[in-house]
Design a protein around this nucleic acid. Structure first.
Lengths: 264, 264
DNA sequence: CGATCTGTTGATATCCTTCAATTTTGGTGG
DNA sequence: CCACCAAAATTGAAGGATATCAACAGATCG
């Protein structure tokens, strides 16, 4: 399942490049970030609630999720983390984590020490801008999640989940247009969508009977993307944050010029 | 209802000061931001979905909310915006808004043009850091919102809402410890919590019968904060982002020193 | 190749919604 | 200041979407 060494940073580069053009130096720096990875088994904790955040990480391969557990065992998953996602960039500002992160399947992550991250963002204005942009993107995803949980029924939630995952994987250069891996269990999906595993199962069955999707051996094929997206009713403006406005590019150029003038 | 002129920036200053110490210069710059306000009637649009974000704003007085409306009229409120909140600081990175913002009651806002904001954050490292911190805080609030919608029942959601609002108002220096204004309707609360107005009403009635709260003329008194917080079961780590880590303070000092060396 | 986790199905329960009517509140103009 | 009107809050009754419980089948993994 591991991506060939040397190309493991592809997803991250691809993701950030969606936003603005990265120089060869930027790309090299990102590659450098992810050249030493740690391999974790499935269902392992990466960060626990209450931890003092010390470092960010890039998920290189596999899958993880952010979640919180209530005292009676109920679990809410905030989001799935896929290859190319970079997590907790700004967490250094936090005293303690208010949620946990754990792997879904066997997963490789590249940890980035706080100092290294700071140096990176200082020396690479475009990476800095792109990282803030990923934070904005995460916020947009969270907003949509709130809408789904608050005002959509089970069918709409599942459709939304499938669309979002396909969309995210494809922008990271993973998965084909309509065929993706679903490594998480239906219980995981239930905890993301605020449903029970049983009900998630029934909705998926339903979608299969309607020939909207095919699902076997954790492989999902979207047979009728159009209709699934229709059920999900994603905002036409959702995730249209595909390119940096001109002003951002110019500001990055300015900072790069400034840096060349005073190396310290 | 309007705060006396000259003190209208208090809430913002108070909020940011929770995070790190602001210099007199910083405070003056913030006061300068909010010295010209625009007054809007109740139930008025501030920003509409699809708009190209041009500027941020500070809510000086009143109340507003972020929301999205689905095609069949269902509405989901993402959050209420209270005096001292600063919105869409990073939105300049966005092409289009994926949600709307509108007032709940008559509201005063101070708009901040993009250039002015950029200048502000460039000239005031501590304000810059504090603004990013507010973004982190908003993210934490969003996460808790997701947990509430996904995994809490109606009683828990309402309790959580009351606690969060009391907590937020008090950190902005608004409202007393246990008495706050609830200017929004029960329908608004329902749209925040993913419930129906009828059910919100029943839960509130219930809380009153149990002597947990008193509610009349849009004024809420928390009679038993302890128990309400217990029902809400907020994470012990929720919103403990009360002070900047030492590293952030040092970095701000460094940037300030640097700025004194090269004024441009 | 057995043990355990995951997916599937059916029956029943419940929390919340929906619908509808009434009362109360709050705002507005006379 | 009062009368009026619309909006909001309140209450009851009935229905529905999803949860819960339980059992079994199928997949996965050491």
């Amino acid at each position: 399942m591991n991506v060939a060494a040397g190309s493991s940073h592809q997803a991250l580069v691809r993701k950030l490049s969606r936003f603005l053009r990265l120089s060869r130096r930027d790309v090299a720096a990102l590659a450098d970030l992810t050249n030493r990875v740690r391999r974790l088994p499935a269902r392992t904790s990466i960060v626990a609630e209450g931890d003092v955040p010390q470092s960010a990480f890039v998920l290189v391969d596999g899958m993880a999720c952010r979640f919180r557990i209530l005292s009676d065992g109920r679990r809410q998953i905030m989001s799935f983390i896929i290859p190319g996602d970079i997590c907790d960039v700004q967490a250094a500002m936090l005293k303690r984590m208010d949620h946990s992160i754990g792997t879904i399947v066997a997963t490789s992550i590249a940890t980035i020490a706080r100092d290294r991250l700071l140096a990176l963002t200082r020396q690479h204005p475009r990476i800095n801008a792109a990282l803030w942009w990923t934070a904005l993107q995460d916020q947009a995803i969270q907003r949509e999640h709130v809408v789904a949980l608050g005002r959509r029924n089970a069918h709409e939630r599942v459709a939304y989940f499938l669309c979002e995952l396909v969309w995210r994987l494809s922008t990271h250069g993973l998965g084909r247009r309509d065929v993706i891996e679903l490594p998480m269990t239906q219980a995981d999906i239930a905890d993301l969508l605020g449903l029970t595993p049983v009900h998630v199962n029934r909705v998926l069955q339903d979608f299969r009977k309607q020939n909207l999707i095919a699902l076997e051996r954790r492989q999902l094929r979207l047979l009728d993307m159009e209709r699934v997206a229709g059920i999900a009713e994603l905002s036409p403006h959702y995730l249209l944050l595909d390119r940096a406005p001109e002003a951002i590019e110019l500001e990055c150029d300015r900072q790069e010029r400034l840096m060349r003038l005073l190396p310290p």
